[in-house]
């Protein structure tokens, strides 16, 4: 197996009754790559992602994530990846420090390691003054940055981000992407879904799902050339609208 490929997916399929939500998708993601996973609502993105993070059994096909098979080693996948979604992130009624400690504990870090990690994380995000405040009292943008850092607390090889920047202001959105770049620079693979097409341009490669299939997969530059348009938004509109 090529160790540089952190995600390897072949003909992965999920069928619900007579509906094929994910239809034989095939792709690889390299170490340190920022991989954009796009598609219209209902195209099958969430179903595909659920299979990759080990919480939904595929109907057929093959996939390994961080070296583990999605069929036989789903539990190992969960321990070895980071995950952040806009919908579920942190506990609002725990403080910043408590959240970090909680998630560190969940991932089996030692007390000493949690302490070290918490100190680094709070310093890097500039949260010294609010470390003992309830997360619920923080602005959304701070929460999202904290949530991202917490998803990396156990040093995973790969982090899955499900629409991480919804609703935040444009400055915070960019600060968030700087954290993503930094993680990628450190060799962490980033698998991200978004509805912001300018964010699709920030990805190294982008795949676009339409009706359960991956209809396009390339660098943003090559996709724009291929579809003869100027922006990823136009690529998306062309593909998804047919």
């Amino acid at each position: 197996m090529n160790t540089n490929k952190v995600i390897q997916v072949k003909e992965l399929t999920k069928v619900f009754g007579d509906f094929t939500a994910v239809n034989a998708i095939t792709f690889d993601v390299e170490k340190g790559e920022i991989f954009g996973f796009l598609g219209a609502n209902g195209a099958g993105k969430t179903t595909a992602m659920k299979m990759l993070i080990g919480i939904s059994n595929p109907t057929s096909g093959k996939a390994t994530v961080a070296g583990f098979d999605v069929f036989t080693n789903a539990e190992d996948i969960k321990k070895n990846i980071g995950y952040m979604s806009q919908k579920f992130a942190l506990y609002d009624d725990l403080t910043v420090k408590e959240n970090i400690t909680f998630f560190g504990g969940i991932y089996g870090l030692s007390r000493k390691r949690i302490k070290e990690k918490a100190a680094i994380l709070i310093k890097e995000l500039g949260l010294e003054n609010v470390a003992n405040k309830l997360v619920g009292s923080l602005p959304l943008g701070w929460k999202q940055k904290l949530s991202f850092s917490v998803s990396l607390i156990h040093d995973p090889k790969i982090v899955f981000l499900d629409e991480p920047t919804g609703g935040v202001d444009p400055i915070t959105r960019r600060q968030f992407w700087e954290l993503i770049y930094k993680a990628s620079h450190q060799g962490i693979t980033v698998f991200v879904t978004t509805h912001y097409m300018d964010e699709a341009e920030y990805c190294d490669r982008v795949s676009i799902m339409v009706n359960g299939k991956i209809e396009a997969l390339d660098t943003p530059k090559k996709l724009k050339e291929q579809f003869k348009v100027d922006t990823m938004n136009d690529v998306f509109l062309k593909l998804a609208r047919g």
Binding site: A40, N41, A43, G166, A240, R241
Partner: peptide, 8 residues
Amino acid sequence: TGVDPVSR
């Protein structure tokens, strides 16, 4: 919010 570019 949360709607894909085509539906938007």
